[in-house]
Computed example of a mutant assay.
Amino acid sequence: MFYKLAISMLCLLMLSGCWSRRELNELLIVLGVGVDWEDGHYLVSYQVVNPSEISNQKKAGDRPPSTLFQGRGRTLFEAARSVTAEAPRKVYMGHLQMYVIGEEAARRGIKELVDSAARDNETRLDFNFIVAKGTKAEDVLKLYTPVEKLPSYSMQQSLKTSEKNWAPTIAVTLDEALNKLSVQGDELALTGIRVIGSPDVGETKQNVETFMPPSRFRYSGIAAFKEDKLIGWLNEKESKGYTDITNNLDSTSIALACGDKRFLGVEVSSSDSKIKTKVVDGNPEVEISIRTEGNIVERTCTDIDLSDPKTIERLQKETKQSILANVEAAVARAKEIKSDIFGFGVQLGKEHAAFWKQIQDQWSDEYFPQLKVDYKIEMYIRKTGTTENSTIR
């Protein structure tokens, strides 16, 4: 009997209870974080949820669905703690969705930002990093957004949808950013976001009271980093090439000229790329193989006979040339700014470890800009639509 009692007491002692629990009404749920660099200090913006304004059980009031709290400091931790001077509750980062970095902060370096986010035991690894292009991160987080009430959620959904169906965007998470910043021979690249229209109007409720919001966000270009500093931007064409080379392209559209200001539409339905490296006479070389499949989705030129196999062959060649132009432009831009955003160096290290150890310190500034790159592209058009040659003239 005593033995059973002793075991029961020991089991009770091992139960710690909810010693660290915190009630929801004691927290500020953070969905978006923005970091800017101003006058030698970090400006950290927290976009937090107003629960009563997004509840389906209560009619929305006059308050916005989210609120922005800000803090300044010489370090990120100091800036975060200074928020408590005005925030009524402690911020909670467990539901963070978007981390927006101002362009000036990105050019200064983001190691501290990524390191600080990774050290927080409340944050998860699946939120996305983006760079505010030509504007401040706080301006992006202040926008009233249509359809979705919460701006950070709207941005995250738009980023994921664009990554799958467009091409010049990539959804990079915290763990992926950490990996890129932790190795030599693979630089970080993040999607850019810009504010269209007036930011002042965007932070008022008037922004969502018209059919076309006067101010809105749009993903634009890819930010290329060298080590941890933003060094340059890829345009739309170069960004498409980047996602294709790095095997991040799921689907996109290609327009082929077929007449006077007329284009034939090709939807890329799948794309698979592989990178191989070799060393020839002491010089590294890279071969990029891309296998793409697509469908004809738009035929504005009626003189194109889609039932003719020769026509399909010609369209495949033209589509292949468009893909080649994109990837060549991406590689040329990366070489120009000396940023190996494709991870050629990492692949070289895997396949030729001894050679990589000899040159890794000179890779970015000497070997990568002079790197010989060969392209092997295959393009197959699988479908031409249910009507093939339309009767429309």
Score class of each variant (00 low, 15 high):
residue 82 S to V: 12
residue 210 T to Q: 14
residue 189 A to N: 01
residue 248 N to E: 13
residue 325 A to D: 15
residue 298 E to R: 10
residue 202 G to K: 03
residue 389 N to G: 05
residue 15 L to K: 00
residue 143 L to I: 10
residue 11 C to V: 15
residue 133 K to N: 06
residue 68 L to Q: 06
residue 215 S to E: 02
residue 58 K to M: 12
residue 263 F to W: 07
residue 282 G to C: 08
residue 254 I to N: 04
residue 324 L to D: 05
residue 293 E to A: 11
residue 239 S to H: 01
residue 205 K to C: 04
residue 233 W to K: 02
residue 279 V to Q: 06
residue 171 A to T: 07
residue 364 S to Y: 07
residue 186 D to C: 04
residue 214 P to L: 08
residue 332 A to T: 13
residue 149 K to M: 12
residue 170 I to G: 02
residue 113 L to R: 05
residue 59 K to D: 08
residue 269 S to Q: 10
residue 338 K to Q: 15
residue 192 G to R: 01
residue 371 L to S: 07
residue 196 I to C: 00
residue 305 D to K: 13
residue 94 G to W: 04
residue 53 E to N: 01
residue 358 Q to T: 13
residue 91 V to T: 15
residue 244 D to L: 07
residue 343 G to H: 04
residue 324 L to A: 11
residue 226 K to Y: 12
residue 376 K to L: 09
residue 58 K to R: 15
residue 305 D to A: 09
residue 247 N to C: 03
residue 38 E to L: 14
residue 138 E to R: 14
residue 321 Q to M: 11
residue 197 G to Y: 04
residue 393 R to K: 15
residue 53 E to Y: 03
residue 85 A to M: 11
residue 366 E to Q: 12
residue 224 A to V: 13
residue 291 R to P: 02
residue 207 N to D: 08
residue 142 K to D: 11
residue 130 I to R: 05
residue 97 Q to T: 05
residue 180 K to N: 09
residue 257 A to V: 14
residue 100 V to A: 03
residue 132 A to F: 04
residue 23 E to H: 11
residue 181 L to W: 02
residue 125 L to C: 00
residue 265 G to L: 10
residue 313 E to T: 13
residue 193 I to C: 06
residue 372 K to W: 02
residue 84 T to P: 03
residue 360 Q to G: 00
residue 179 N to Q: 12
residue 318 E to F: 14
residue 66 S to P: 04
residue 276 K to Y: 06
residue 284 P to Y: 10
residue 220 S to E: 13
residue 120 D to I: 13
residue 183 V to Y: 07
residue 90 K to E: 14
residue 379 M to H: 10
residue 202 G to I: 04
residue 199 P to K: 07
